[in-house]
């Protein structure tokens, strides 16, 4: 069974990290990832940009574009897509297409990826 491990933390605190602290955390995480990759268990890994870079598309007949991250508590995270887009406008259009295909309500949060390691070849 594949499991998605979703990382939650206080962005205020992470933004206040010194470069050294950030590098140390990334190195520690890197060590765990290497172990998982060696065991052939690691899929794609992504670090997202801060929520200030996020845009949310509220699904519906007239999709609504809202600045900022998804902030409702009535809906839950059910899945995600990683799509290569030339611009934010294209990303928003793509999210709308995906939203139309889902049909139901809910939202897509569009957040640029800061760091991406594609799937380890052994998986």
């Amino acid at each position: 069974m594949l499991y998605a491990m979703l990382c939650y933390d206080s962005e205020d605190v992470v933004c206040a990290w010194s470069q050294e602290k950030n590098d140390a955390v990334m190195a520690d995480l890197g060590a765990v990832q290497q172990r998982l990759a060696a065991q052939g268990r690691l899929g794609p890994v992504a670090r997202l940009m801060p929520t200030t870079a996020a845009t949310t598309i509220r699904k519906g007949r007239e999709a609504m574009v809202i600045d900022g991250p998804f902030a409702e508590t009535k809906e839950q995270l059910l899945g995600f897509f990683i799509v290569d887009c030339a611009s934010l406008d294209e990303a928003i259009e793509t999210a709308k297409e995906l939203g139309d295909a889902c049909g139901s309500g809910g939202s897509f949060e569009v957040r640029p990826v800061m760091l991406f390691n594609p799937v380890a070849p052994t998986l």
Binding site: M49, A53, T55, V65, S87, L88, P112, M114, L115
Partner: peptide, 16 residues
């Protein structure tokens, strides 16, 4: 690079 993409993304958001 990451700072540049974040900046480009943000200006894209603003222009909308």
């Amino acid at each position: 690079g990451p700072l540049i993409s974040e900046g480009i993304n943000l200006i894209g958001k603003a222009v909308r």
